[in-house]
Simulated assay, not measured.
Amino acid sequence: MSNENELSGGTRAQNLSLPIELSAEKIQDFQAAFSIMDAQSKGFVAADDINQVAQAADMTLVENEAQLLLGSADEDHSGGIDMREFISIMTTPINQQDLEEELRATFRVFDKDGNGTINANELKRFVRLYDTELTEDEADDMISQADPNKTGSINYDDFIQFLLHT
Rank of each mutant, 00 (worst) to 15 (best):
A66E: 00
D141Y: 03
T132Y: 02
I118E: 05
F126P: 01
E100S: 01
M83H: 10
E133Q: 09
F110G: 08
D111P: 04
M83F: 15
D141H: 08
I94F: 02
I118L: 04
N95L: 05
N155M: 06
D113Q: 15
H77V: 04
D82N: 14
Q97T: 10
K124T: 06
N119S: 15
F126M: 12
A47G: 05
E122H: 14
D113Y: 14
E65F: 10
V62N: 12
Q145G: 13
E122G: 15
Y156C: 06
K124G: 13
L164Y: 02
D111I: 03
Q55M: 03
E100I: 01
I87D: 01
R125N: 11
M90G: 04
R104E: 13
G79R: 02
F107T: 05
I160H: 09
V127M: 13
A54D: 01
I118C: 07
V127L: 09
A57Q: 09
L129V: 10
M59H: 10
F110K: 03
E102H: 07
D49A: 02
L134R: 05
N51T: 00
F110H: 06
N149H: 12
E133M: 05
E102F: 03
I87R: 00
E138T: 01
E63K: 06
L134A: 11
E133A: 13
A139Y: 09
N115H: 11
L68A: 09
A56R: 05
D158E: 12
D82Q: 04
D82G: 10
L61I: 04
S153F: 11
P148K: 14
N51Q: 00
A57L: 07
D140F: 10
S88Y: 10
S153K: 11
I94W: 00
I81P: 00
T60K: 15
Q55E: 09
T135M: 14
Q161V: 08
A73C: 09
L123S: 14
Q145R: 15
D113R: 15
A47Y: 03
D49V: 01
R104K: 12
A139S: 10
N51K: 00
Q161T: 13
D76T: 08
I89C: 01
D58V: 01
D140L: 08
T106V: 07
D137Q: 05
Q145V: 14
E136W: 00
T132A: 06
I87E: 02
L129S: 11
R84G: 10
V53T: 02
L103E: 07
I154Q: 04
N149F: 14
M90R: 06
Q96S: 14
I81C: 00
R125S: 05
G71V: 05
R84E: 12
D140T: 09
E102I: 03
D111N: 06
D141T: 07
L123I: 14
R128S: 13
F159T: 09
E102P: 00
D113N: 15
M142K: 11
G79D: 02
F162R: 11
A73E: 08
A56W: 00
R104C: 07
Q52C: 08
G79C: 01
M59I: 14
D48G: 09
F126Y: 04
F110C: 05
L69N: 00
M90T: 04
M142T: 11
N149E: 15
M142P: 07
F110V: 05
K112N: 07
D141G: 04
V62T: 07
Y130K: 04
D58E: 01
R104F: 06
L103C: 06
